[in-house]
Amino acid sequence: MNKKGKIADSKADIIYPIVGFIAFFLVISFLITLIIDILIDGFEKLVDPSFYTSYPSRFPEKAGILSGWVGTMLVMAGAIFWSLIIGIPAGIYLEEYATKRGIIGKIESIIELNINNLAAVPAIIYGLLALGIFVYRFKFGESILTAGLTLSILMLPVIVVNTREAIRRIPRDIREGAYAVGATKWDTVRDHILPYSLGGILTGLIIAASRAIGETAPLVTIGALTFIAFLPPAPFVSEFPFFSPEKAWELFMSPFTVLPIQIFNWVSRPQAAFQINAAAAGFVLLVLTVLMNALAYYYRQKVRRKYIW
């Protein structure tokens, strides 16, 4: 390299960090602009308490997000429930139980490959799956049950990956110690693996839920309604045992809307007044997402400090 080239090179080393930082700053500005834009656009509705307690309406000034946020909570509860009974156990199996030998080993590698592939499937394809299977073939209809199942499938790859990572961090000595005093595999999982990895597993669950809460496309595909002017029935009754299975079933099968779908509906309308509602609801959704991500981030740091092997 000639001398001129060297000088140009060393100048580049001074200039590049500035260029790189500007590129990164561009991303931050984009993010801040987005947040401020929807905050300003939706401000007048955000500070109006009746916005949170009103049903959607054809009059934009009366319309609110009551059925939206109640629907979001119910659908997310369903999604988290299914993740607890399928996603987390599947992750535990792959990391802790997998034998990797013989026919079972073949099945295990198929499960593993399958979950890796699911992570890359576009969300709307899950909507088509749910439409074809849950709505029309299982006859669950366009219900809260269908929506919860759909979102739990979306959450599955994230949950499995996080569960496995949390378990992998536990050193082998812990397991050997448990086996040495006569514990079975399940004893070890219950008394050691689960307690030590719980933080990491829950972090994964929160991250997955924060992605699912903003999902719109798969729920549009299964036919979530945008105009719901009632709440699903509460599964409680006044006489003992205060819980009615019929009403609970009615709740699961009830039609629903969720915040993202409500926003989509309002954005698509020509009247500008509805766009204020869309911005306000969008900000609510964004705050929920930020809170969940911050919680997961904080929790992850805390867990990492708690167990240092």
Partner: peptide, 12 residues
């Protein structure tokens, strides 16, 4: 976090 923002908000 760019990926965590609900896409419907990006749409708006």
């Amino acid at each position: 976090f760019m990926e965590a923002i609900p896409t419907v908000v990006y749409g708006y």
